[in-house]
Amino acid sequence: MQDFSFHKPQNLAAAVDTLKKRPEAKALGGGQSLIPVMKLGLAAPSDLVSVAGLAELRGIKVDGKELVVGAGMTHAEVADSAEVKKAIPALAALAGHIGDAQVRNRGTLGGSLAHDDPAADYPAAVLALGATVVTDRRKIAADDFFRGLYQTALGADEIVTSVRFPIPEKAAYAKFAHPASKFALVGVMVAKGPAGVRVAVTGAGPGVFRQADMERALGGRWAADALAGVAVKAEGLNADPYGSAEYRAHLIGVMARRAVAAAG
């Protein structure tokens, strides 16, 4: 790993200020995505600005019809949170199956979203629930946030501070884990909420995406068998030795049905 300067700012403003002054700097959440990438030499920032512990990024609360989760909350904290379990149990369950126990003890919501691994779990929740990503300077709708392979709408010096999840009527996430990495080979989050029915797929493509045909079918009738007629195309999907595009397309259907069934 190439060396860098480490910064531990006292507050959000100082963190943003450091990022602005150093164009090669990166924000560091729990490090469970960024540190492995740096160890492999795929990223070599000049500075790391630790943000996970900032007070502005901590906390979980229900605010009106939204669940607000601080970007610095670890996956374990989200999974164990009574508020999350009550408001959006599917989100707690999703967080409880990210990576493994040790990763969940360090990895954070904000870090996961900023890294935007195409096989990460959280992006499916953010997109399917129609959440709003709140940063130090603005609010970004989920539909505008994800921009494909490791690309988001975030500026280089922008820090995710929290995510506002509209509390859905029903939601569930079904994940088919990659046998080796345990990332999602295919993960499907379905939700029926204020913004209608939304279906988001992670792991299968170059980035998280919505499945419009399934949304239409479930919008008509919320039931697993409503998806029976929806054909998922393999074109454009990922392929590796553990899952061809065709198999992933098939799994999108299976996971979507299971998620709908689980959501009740």
Partner: peptide
């Protein structure tokens, strides 16, 4: 199962790609 591509690159070259 170790998997090579046709250029001889090991596709299952880490625990992320080789299932232990």
């Amino acid at each position: 199962g170790a998997q090579y591509d046709d250029q001889g690159q090991l596709l299952s070259g880490s625990f992320l790609g080789y299932t232990m």
